[in-house]
Structure formats: structure tokens, C-alpha cells
């Protein structure tokens, strides 16, 4: 098939718009959408210092690449944070990719490991409880990202969450009946505590497949392996369900997230308290007496 704009060979058919894109026009479309999103949502202010969380996968590598492009047009500082959870046979591959692409982009980076910060790798944390790997990893990773971003005096923490990730989270929180998490949105803690660096997700309206095509089309260095603990997560099954729905009814993923974004302010009002307590051990904000991080670390 040919590109709807220039008649070169198409690499992507966007079902929601009915447009075919060649490599060049796909890039133009993708970059424009990214720049427009950052501008319209006012995600990054002039001269702000942004931390970008980079795992070495296609999402965070694409995000770092696009933020570097944005820096050419708009003045802001950027540093990357890489978390080494200690997952044997997996994290070493993604770490190598992250370092190689960040060096190519001339973005300085900091590596924080579970081993150095918590005395244990994720593999050791969950050796008798692999089913909990994703929640343990998520809590400790977010803790380290926030801590390092704060140490670096960053006022934003950018992550590479895509449309598929966001839609999956909406469904998962609802399926678990976790109405608090479903209702609070990404910057709830920021609103109640200065200890939290504001999170931004500039790729949250980009389909995962489009990000893969962009990364391949631009020959970005990224690792495409799957975490060995992913098999224990609910996310994979929910992802397959959403893929099936998207296949049957194109734009399902967009509609899900944009619908959620519309009702979020009302959910916030109904279900989220205006203030919460502090963790008895570390002082970080928490709904319970002891925060999840301290519970995992056995404090």
C-alpha cells in the first residue's frame, strides 16, 4: 500500500483515521502529536529540570529520544534515571540498551539499584513469592525514581507509559475493586505532599504498537525482551483482552482512556480524601499506618 500523503510505500495503517503512512510521514505525524501533547497539556515549563525514567525498553527510549528533540526547540534540563531491580537474565540486557541509547543522545544518566538501596535484588525479594513480583517491584521502583528525581532537584518525572499501559491499569483497578487507586489519578500524592515529584506521561495517548514502529523506524537502540515475572501479572491477560477488543472495535483503547480522563475529576471528588496520614516509620504519606514500601522492606 502507498502513503496517503506522498505515495511512497506505507509502513503503517492507522485504523482510526483511515490514513496510510510511509516512514517519513509516520515520523512527522508521531513527533507532531508528541510536541502538541506536551504543549497543550503544559507538561514541561521553560527552564524546568526533568528526570526521565529509562528502562531500556521501546517506550522509555522513545520518550528520551523525543524529549531530546523537544530540547532543541524549548529550553529545559533533563537527566535520566535507570533503575536496576536485579532481575537476572533480563535487566542486564535492558540496562545495556538504555546506556547505549542515552550515550548516543548525550543524555546524562544515574543508575540506582535495589541491591545498593535495599540490600537485596528483586530476585531475592520475591524468591518465595514470585506472584508478588510486579507489586513489589512497582512500589520500590517508584520509591527510588521519586527519591532520585528529588535529589537531582527535578520538578517533573517523565515516564514512558503508553495508551495500552494506561488502559490496562484502568481495567485492572476496576477488576480488583480498588476504587481508591482507580479514582486518584497519577499525581494524587503530589497534591498532598511536597516530597513527591510531579509525574508526567507524555506517551499516554500513543498506542504501544505505534511506539514500536517509531523505535524501529528510527533505529533506536532498545531491548524488546519480556520480564520473566510478567507471566505472574494480571496485566498481560488484560492487555490481550484489550488487544482483542481493539481488533474488533478500533479506537477502543482511546475511548477507554479518554472516557476515564473525563470522569476522573468526579471520581477524585467522591472517593479520595483531601488529606491522608503519614507512615509511622518513614513519614511518607500513606492511607494506612505503615506505607507499602516499609511493609515490603520489613521495617
Amino acid at each position: 500500500m502507498k502513503c496517503s500523503r506522498c505515495r511512497k510505500d506505507a509502513i503503517y495503517f492507522q485504523r482510526q483515521s483511515g490514513q496510510y503512512y510511509c516512514g517519513d510521514h509516520f515520523n512527522t505525524h508521531f513527533i507532531k502529536k508528541f510536541m502538541r501533547g506536551v504543549r497543550e497539556e503544559q507538561l514541561i515549563k521553560k527552564n524546568e529540570k526533568v528526570a526521565v525514567a529509562v528502562s531500556g525498553g521501546k517506550d522509555s527510549i522513545t520518550l528520551a529520544y523525543l524529549l531530546k528533540k523537544l530540547q532543541l526547540r524549548y529550553p529545559f534540563q533533563m537527566e535520566a534515571i535507570i533503575i536496576d531491580e536485579g532481575i537476572s537474565g533480563y535487566r542486564n540486557l535492558t540496562l545495556d540498551a538504555a546506556k547505549a541509547q542515552l550515550e548516543r543522545l548525550e543524555i546524562s544518566y544515574h543508575i540506582e539499584s535495589f541491591k545498593d538501596n535495599f540490600d537485596k535484588t528483586l530476585d531475592i525479594f520475591v524468591e518465595n513469592n514470585k506472584e508478588n513480583a510486579c507489586s513489589t517491584c512497582g512500589v520500590l521502583r517508584r520509591y527510588l525514581l521519586n527519591k532520585k528525581a528529588r535529589e537531582l532537584s527535578c520538578t517533573k518525572l517523565a515516564t514512558g507509559h503508553n495508551l495500552d499501559d494506561e488502559g490496562q491499569s484502568v481495567i485492572m483497578n476496576l477488576m480488583r475493586g480498588d476504587i481508591i487507586r482507580f479514582s486518584r489519578g497519577q499525581n494524587y500524592y503530589k497534591k498532598i505532599s511536597d516530597k513527591f515529584v510531579e509525574r508526567i506521561k507524555p506517551l499516554r495517548y500513543f498506542l504501544e504498537k505505534e511506539i514500536v514502529i517509531f523505535a524501529l523506524n528510527n533505529k533506536l537502540i532498545f531491548d524488546s525482551s519480556e520480564c520473566p515475572y510478567a507471566v505472574y501479572a494480571m496485566r498481560g491477560e488484560v492487555g490481550k483482552f484489550l488487544d482483542k477488543m481493539e481488533d474488533l472495535r478500533p479506537t477502543t483503547k482511546y475511548s477507554l482512556l479518554s472516557g476515564y480522563d473525563k470522569i476522573l475529576p468526579a471520581l477524585n471528588k467522591c472517593f479520595i480524601p483531601e488529606s491522608i496520614g503519614a507512615c509511622k516509620i518513614c513519614g511518607e504519606p500513606t492511607m494506612d499506618g505503615v506505607c507499602m514500601g516499609c511493609k515490603i522492606l520489613g521495617k
Binding site: 500500500m1 510505500d9 506505507a10 509502513i11 503503517y12 495503517f13 496510510y20 516512514g23 504498537k209 514500536v212 514502529i213 524501529l216 523506524n217 490481550k240 488487544d243 482483542k244 481493539e246 481488533d247
Partner: peptide
Amino acid sequence: LKEQYVAIKNGKIVC
């Protein structure tokens, strides 16, 4: 499902 794979024909990404 087409959502789950990018197709590459003889080294080139295709629809």
C-alpha cells in the same frame, strides 16, 4: 492479532 505484532517483509516494516 495485528495489535500484537509489527510485520517486517524482507527487512521492511509493512502494513
